[in-house]
């Protein structure tokens, strides 16, 4: 066998191994229901902040802990403890991705991605426009 063949076989084997390793070493997106069924597994849970519930952040007690309620995409609400300081403009977030595990009936997230709306003002604008319209129609 020529050396180039050996190298090629190694390359293909490595590429295949990468694929499998990459798949097996992944987290998965889930809703709260699934995450609470498997409390030992780490999940990415996507949802939105429940603005009606209280956001607990008491830096005097612990600056690295934030508590809030998230509604997942299926509409299930859960109390969440995030092991981070409260992100700036948390209240205005559009969607959240929690990375963590279920613990009892709470979700404990070690990390969180937060999407702030880039279209924030656009929505605002249409409100303005409607009000302008009303004044026009009147």
């Amino acid at each position: 066998m020529k050396r180039s063949h050996i190298i090629m076989i190694i390359m293909i084997a490595l590429a295949g191994a990468f694929m499998i390793a990459s798949v097996s070493d992944s987290s998965s997106y889930a809703d709260f229901a699934e995450a609470f069924e498997n409390p030992e597994k780490e999940y990415h849970v996507v949802g939105t902040l429940d603005r009606s519930a209280e956001i607990i952040y008491e830096p005097e007690v612990n600056p690295n802990l934030t508590g809030f309620t998230m509604i997942d995409n299926k509409g299930e609400k859960r109390t969440v403890w995030l092991n981070k300081s409260k992100p700036q403009d948390f209240e205005r977030s559009e969607s959240l991705v929690l990375i963590g595990k279920a613990e009892g009936d709470e979700f404990h997230a070690g990390d969180m991605l937060m999407k702030c709306p880039s279209k924030y003002k656009e929505e605002q604008k249409f409100e303005y426009i409607e009000s302008a319209e009303n004044s026009y129609n009147r």
């Binding site: 600056p63 690295n64 403890w81 981070k84 300081s85 613990e103 404990h108 070690g110």
Partner: peptide, 12 residues
């Protein structure tokens, strides 16, 4: 609260 919560990186 959670023994995996070891994040104490921010100071008050």
């Amino acid at each position: 609260l959670n023994e995996e919560f070891k994040n104490n990186e921010d100071i008050l």
